[in-house]
Computed example of a mutant assay.
Amino acid sequence: MPPTTVGPALLSWASQLEESTAAQARQTAAMPFIHPHVALMPDAHSGKGSAVGTVIPTRGAVMPAAVGVDIGCGMIAVRTEFTRDDVDRRITATGHRLATLRVRIENVIPLSPGNYNRGTAGWTFTAPRIAELEALAATGDVDLTHSPKWRRQLGSLGGGNHFIELCLDETDRVWLFLHSGSRGVGNRIAQHHIRIAQQACAQRHVALPNRDLAYLTEGTTEFDRYLTDLHWAQRFAYLNRAEMMDRFGAVFARWMGTPDHRETDRINCHHNYTQQEVHGGERVWLTRKGAVDAHAGVRAVIPGSMGTHSYVVEGLGNTDGLCSAPHGAGRRFSRTEAKRRYTQADLRARMVGIEYRDSAEFIDEIPDAYKPIDVVMDDARDLVRVVHELRQILNVKGT
């Protein structure tokens, strides 16, 4: 759909947009360093500081809270050579149903906030990733003393809307799919720099419409320090997803009785991050808070909610949309409101045909708590084209 103007320097692709979200986006768009405009994605909803689903181009400044506390959060999807028939034959031959696979996944990938790996020597592919992150931290003098267990966080899922899924595409080809970010270490980095930005603005007596729009100015030590730490956290998030995917692939291969998971394609993309790009004829710092890169030909993954379809997409390079696209379904109701409205029986009804851990703790993740993903994707038709449509047959969530 074409964008609508919902305020000065503010374009929206959301056909379902709450006034509270629009008001929050107007505050962001009114900041003096925005150029050329802020873009609201189809899944936009209220967030901390700035709305989730906001693409924010800034000249000479970055707002740490706008990037968010889950730096580098994103998706990874792997296509395999297996098909639904291969999975069904395996179940018939061994009697090991998808529940067996789900439990094995839960045993090798720590779930939930605060859960760590017992050690770092269990997988051959882990050590090189830790070594890369150690070298990156040493080169940039990244202070990680606030997170002494960060190495044991690598390969852990987290909670909330983070998940692991076994999916089938439109040809019944099997995909491995998961959503996670920079875990506790990224959160600590973000909170540290949010405080510094707020202190810096207070010291300069900057009048802010919202404390979480506090910013760091390019050319200062604080700005440079944040960008270095941010880059490290974004890399951690990227490698964290890769680590979990390789574990998932190994477990799936064992469940299938094969030496490997026969991977044919892999897409690993952020949807909470900042990087330099050219927009409106100028080089800006582009913050995608709940949005993916949709430059022409760039592939990304847009998940639905628990129990609904997800999409592998290719960017169309829409310049009005700042070459961005939505990152998912986007919440309709808060977690508290979802728990008030829905029951465990409602969740069971929505998850028929999908293997998952049947628990009341996931009521707030029921698909009804999110915007319909089909509406979001229709709104995004000028931003991306759909390459694959995925439907899950197994779901693992952190609590």
Rank of each mutant, 00 (worst) to 15 (best):
L11E: 03
S12A: 10
A22T: 13
Q24L: 00
Q24K: 04
A29Y: 02
M31D: 03
P32M: 02
F33D: 08
P36T: 10
L40F: 04
P42I: 02
H45S: 03
S46Q: 14
G49E: 00
S50M: 09
G53N: 10
T58N: 05
A61G: 12
M63F: 07
V67M: 08
V69M: 07
A77E: 04
T80V: 12
T83K: 12
R84K: 14
V87H: 04
R89F: 08
A93D: 15
A93N: 13
T94P: 07
A99K: 12
A99W: 08
V103P: 02
S112N: 13
N115L: 09
N115W: 07
N115F: 10
R118A: 13
W123I: 10
P128V: 11
T145Y: 04
S156C: 11
G158L: 02
G159F: 03
G160F: 01
N161R: 08
F163D: 00
L166G: 11
L168D: 12
D172Y: 08
R173Q: 15
G186H: 01
A200V: 11
A202G: 12
A202R: 15
R204Y: 07
V206F: 03
R211Y: 03
W232K: 06
F248C: 03
F252A: 02
D260G: 11
R262Y: 13
T264L: 15
D265L: 14
C269T: 15
Q275M: 12
G280K: 06
G280L: 08
E282L: 14
L286D: 08
K289Y: 04
G290S: 07
A296I: 12
P303L: 09
P303W: 01
G317A: 08
D320Q: 15
G321W: 02
S324A: 14
G328I: 01
R331S: 03
T336I: 09
R341K: 14
A345M: 05
M351K: 08
G353I: 06
I354R: 09
I354M: 09
S359M: 05
S359R: 13
I366A: 03
D368C: 09
I373G: 08
D378P: 05
D379Y: 00
H388P: 04
T399D: 06
